[in-house]
Structure formats: C-alpha cells, structure tokens
Design a protein around this nucleic acid. Structure first.
Lengths: 214, 214
DNA sequence: ACAAGAATTACAGTAACTGCACTTTTCTAT
DNA sequence: ATAGAAAAGTGCAGTTACTGTAATTCTTGT
C-alpha cells in the first residue's frame, strides 16, 4: 500500500502503526501549509498528500489545526519542576521562564521537524493564536508550582488566600511573558529562541523594579 | 413582520436601520446561547428568532461567534490615555489596569445587555477564549502608551531599544493581568468587576517585589 | 491458519460561511 | 410628491470542516 513510511528519523520509539500514519498526515499538513498557506490548504489536499481518506484524517486529529500544531501542548518536566521549587535565585519569574523553555525544548525530539512546523505556524495568524492558546494549558499546573516557591519568600502571616491569588496571577503573567517571547522569536528580533529568552530575562529584570515602583 | 423591536432601552443615538437589525440579531444570539449553550445554538435558530435570513446574518456578523461577543473589542479612551501618560503614581501597572478597566466600562452604555452577554460568554470556553483574544487587540496600542510613561522612570542612558522591548513586555504582562481579572470575575471570586480590579491591584503590589527579588 | 481487535474506508449528513444575482426598502434631489 | 440612487435584505447554490454509522481491510497472538 504505502510506498514507504519515511525512511529517516527513526530514533527512539517503535511507534505503533497508528502513530505512523498520524505523523505522515501531520508532515503532509505542514508541507502543504508552508507551500500554500493555511487557508488555501484543504483537508482533502492533506489527505491526498498523505494517501489517506478524510475520515481517517479526523480519526487521528480532531481539527485541521491540530494536524499542523499537534494535539498536545508542552508538558512541564517532572525533575525540572522539582528543582524550580527548590530554587533560591532572586528572580522567580526568570526561573519560571527557564523551566518552561527547557521543558518545551526537551519535548522536541525532532529538531528539523519542529523548525518546519514553526515555519508553517507563522504563516497564519490563526495558527499562531492557537499555538499560544496551547501554551496557556499549563497555566493551572504552573500556578500550583509557583505557589510552593512563593510561600518561601512571603511573610508567614500572609493569608493563604492571598498566596493562591498571587500564584494564579503569576501564572497569567508568565503566559504574557511567553507570548512576548513567542512574538519576538517569530518576528525575528532574535536569531535563536535561546537568545530571545536570555534577552527577555534581562529586560524583565530591568523592568520589574520600575513597575513595582522603586 | 417583527412584532416589536424592543420598546425599551432607546437612550442616545438614532442608530441607522442597519444597526438596529444587528442589535436584534445579537440580542437573539445572546438569549439563545444562554438558554441552550453555544454549540447547541445554530445560526439558523438565531436567524429565526431575529426574523432574518441567514444571508443577512452574515452580512452583519462575520462569524457566529461575533454575533455573541460583538464585532469590535474595547478601545482606549483618549482623555484617559493622556492622564495615564502624565500620571506620577509609583505603580505603573496599577494605573494601566485602571485605564483599561475604565475604558471598557465607559464603552458599555447598556449595563443590563452587557451582563447578559457576559453570562452567554461564560457558558462556553470557546467564547471565553475569543473574548480574551479580543482584548489582545489593544496590546500594540498599549505598548506605545506605556513607553512614554516608562521613559520618565528610566535612567536617561538606557538605550531606546530596551525601552521599546520593555514596553511591549509590559503590554503582554498587562494582557495576562486582564486575563486573570476576567477569570476571577467569571469564577465569581468577587461580586463586582470593580472589586476584582481593586483586589488585583493589591495582590499585584504584594507580588511584584517578590518576583523582582527584593 | 484463524479469530479478535485495531485501523481504515465509503457514504451520508450537518453546520458554518461565501459569492452572486435579485428584490425591497430607505434616502435624496428636484 | 416622485424618480432615481443607494442601502439593506433575500434566495440559492456551492465549498469546507467535521461527525456518525457500518462495512472492510490489515495485524497480531495463539
């Protein structure tokens, strides 16, 4: 049936038959979106390119968008979370940015594939928006983690409700920062994502005292 | 044809014929979404309730979503922007929150209608997401405004590029804060939106020094 | 080899949205 | 007041994303 199922990029997992076609579909989607743009790419086109029926497409991906950006957003790395909570650096926000960035990077086994996907995503505001939304999913998780760390630098008589509110607030703040980073990277302000993150930490360090009113 | 076009709530503008039907459609949409939920409400249902053809519906609203949340997001009030820039309060973030909140409130002539719309929006995660996206539109505008204010509390030898980056960052941060406020209001943590804003300012004042690393 | 189960498929249908050509209503100039 | 222009509304046909159902083709353990 299928002539070949991509002879390259077979690094770690055996990946069941189903997952293989999912990757084939996703790859086709990314390619077509890069070539024609998101709106001009129909599901039928993707199916034809992947050698698959439309119904199979929707068995693997809930939406056309998902076939390009992926089904699941990034997850926070368990061990990195632990060291974040235990961290003593004065910049909680900076540490959190690092935590997120490292987790995302760690979850990307295929660098080249990720680069292409990024390229496809930047071609459409819709996709960029969804990508950002995906990041927001870890917000709740993040709020919980920040609360532990925040408790250590707070005065003991501060009510727990405040601490919880501040943690949630921090998580939303972080989402804003990540959004800024994403924007900076996509706008090409910085060559690599790593540079953008370092730069953002620097700006943040200079900015926060002003906002807080030093 | 239409039995009556809502005999109440005719306060200020004459509002051309076209705008009137747009309001009729939107009102029908909000009502139906509150009753059946967003997904279970079809465009055809809205059209029937508004006494309008489907084609007319899409002449007034680009999407089904727009008929519920509105076409345009909030705009910043001109005079309030001026006094924000001229402000001397130590909390820039706090002032900015106030600016946004007041602008949004000022743009809502019909309190009861807004309340109903809010109720409809909260019934669906999709709609909530779109509502938040709408807020993001003023981000660019906000970044420009913040830059003027930020320039006054920065050292004169700080490069302008940094100032610009920090302004943009602040705008994204603010988007995060507004998102938090929206979430708090919708979750019913606070009775009124005004309370939520005041409370958020308080939490922010306590939080920022910790994040900055005092 | 064969039965159980997963993967894929065709088919038919719903719902959002668009372009086009047409009718009706409203506004404006005389 | 009335004609003519402009705006608002409509019907229809078509595209595209997405879903349910039931039949069909692999894949795999024994």
């Amino acid at each position: 049936m299928s002539e070949s199922v991509a002879p390259h990029a077979r690094a770690s997992e055996p990946t069941s038959r189903g997952a293989a076609t999912a990757r084939r579909i996703s790859a086709a989607a990314v390619d077509l979106v890069i070539e024609h743009g998101y709106d001009a790419t129909t599901v039928d086109m993707i199916c034809a390119a992947a050698g698959v029926s439309q119904r199979t497409f929707f068995n693997h991906f809930p939406t056309k968008e998902a076939s390009v950006i992926g089904v699941d957003g990034p997850r926070l790395d368990e061990s990195r979370v632990r060291s974040f909570i235990a961290g003593t650096s004065p910049s909680i926000l900076g540490d959190a940015i690092e935590l997120i960035a490292q987790s995302v990077l760690a979850a990307a086994p295929d660098i080249d594939g990720m680069r292409r996907r990024m390229q496809a995503i930047t071609s459409s505001p819709t996709l960029m928006q969804r990508q950002i939304d995906q990041f927001a999913v870890i917000e709740r998780e993040l709020a919980e983690i920040v609360q532990y760390r925040l408790a250590r630098v707070s005065s003991p008589d501060e009510p727990e409700g405040d601490l919880q509110a501040q943690s949630r607030l921090t998580a939303h703040l972080l989402a804003g920062v990540m959004r800024y980073v994403a924007g900076a990277v996509m706008a090409g302000d910085r060559a690599a994502a790593g540079d953008a993150i370092i730069e953002t930490r620097r700006q943040l360090a200079a900015l926060l005292p002003k906002l807080a009113g030093g």
